[in-house]
Design a binder for these strands. Structure first.
Length: 332
DNA sequence: ATGGTTTTTACTGCGTC
DNA sequence: GACGCGGTAAAAACCAT
């Protein structure tokens, strides 16, 4: 199902999705926020590169050790520190029994600190779930990291109590997917989660509200590449050829045009965005073919599109009609 | 739970191959 | 006759409250 093409993230917005003002990056705090409404777009944008210098470059940063800071570990990676059980120090000298006792005590504290609270434990399992599901869905690191950040914040604000870690982890992943604009829907995520769809939906709602995630509604365009990439999948009827116009990019461009038109005319309210995406492709195909009745492609009929986006042909028809109406209006 | 809206289901007729 | 398409009424699903 997954193709590399369909999971690319969108370019970052320069303007606030909330109020439209120019965004200002705050280097010190490592976040990009809107000066007008205070919406934080990118939080914790730190340098996660290796914290050591490669050579004896005297101008380089002072060398620090340990693995790079990452949000994908419940303790951001610093828990990798180990206190050796060897009875010798770094130079191979014996350690006194007094010091050994101290070290053993430190070791114990350290271990406790790693998973001290149940909160930390929750974050640990939550994030490992996010990683598991993310990998199953073929998501890139950014999406998983964003999901982890959301999950961590949820935990810090005591939103996990009373809900299952699984639920909130899945919901955080879905929230991250929505923020990135990936064309994945809850049913697809539920397939790799251990949680029912309804719970994901609810958890996502809670996250959205409490953390003020400010997710914009789905853009129908986001679905186009995914649908198009499935148009000529091998599992589709082999007797069906390709479309007769030049290439698929023409189809996508036309479909985008139709969707833009629909947006200008405020047709989206209440309707499933994916329906517009499917219908726009259908309409684009019709328009591009024009009067050319003969075509070797029947993959783009209402039924086939409906199958691809899991909607009925009736829905395709309705959206198609709405799209064509504004299109005809526009072009006289 | 409820009520408004959208989507689906099931059925229709029409034109084309 | 099979197929694609358009329309419709009623049922079902969905969603905000």
């Amino acid at each position: 199902m997954s193709s590399s093409q369909s999971f690319q993230s969108l370019p970052h917005e320069q303007n606030c999705p909330e109020c439209g003002n120019q965004l200002s990056p705050d280097e010190k705090r490592g976040e990009t926020s809107c000066p007008s409404c205070g919406l934080v777009i990118e939080d914790g944008k730190l340098d996660h590169g290796p914290e050591w210098r490669y050579s004896n470059d005297p101008d380089g940063p002072s060398p620090r050790t340990g693995s790079p800071n990452t949000k994908l570990r419940h303790d951001r990676g610093i828990g990798n520190t180990q206190i050796s059980t060897e009875h010798t120090d770094a130079n191979g000298n014996q350690i006194s029994s007094k010091k050994r006792r101290k070290l053993s005590r430190l070791r114990r504290y350290h271990k406790q600190a790693q998973t001290r609270s149940t909160k930390e434990q929750n974050i640990r399992t939550g994030i490992s779930e996010i990683l598991r599901m993310g990998s199953a869905l073929g998501l890139n690191k950014n999406v998983k990291e964003t999901a982890s950040v959301i999950f961590r914040r949820a935990s810090q604000q005591d939103m996990i109590a009373g809900r299952s870690v699984e639920t909130m982890a899945t919901s955080a992943l879905y929230a991250s997917i929505r923020l990135t604009g990936l064309p994945l829907q809850i049913p697809e995520i539920a397939q790799v989660s251990r949680v029912e769809e309804e719970r994901i939906k609810h958890g996502y709602k809670v996250l959205n509200k409490e953390l003020k995630l400010n997710v914009s509604p789905r853009a129908p365009e986001d679905y186009l590449p995914k649908i198009i990439s499935n148009l000529n999948e091998p599992e589709m009827d082999q007797t069906n050829g390709k479309a007769s116009y030049a290439d698929e990019s023409a189809l996508e461009i036309k479909a985008r045009e139709l969707i833009d038109l629909a947006r200008e005319n405020e047709l989206f309210s209440g309707k499933r965005p994916i329906g517009f995406a499917g219908a726009a492709l259908y309409a684009a195909d019709q328009l591009l073919l024009g009067d050319e009745k003969v075509r070797d492609c029947i993959t783009l009929n209402q039924h086939a599109i409906g199958e691809l986006i899991d909607k009925s042909p009736v829905t395709i028809r309705s959206r198609y009609q709405e799209l064509i109406d504004v299109y005809r209006e526009e072009s006289g």
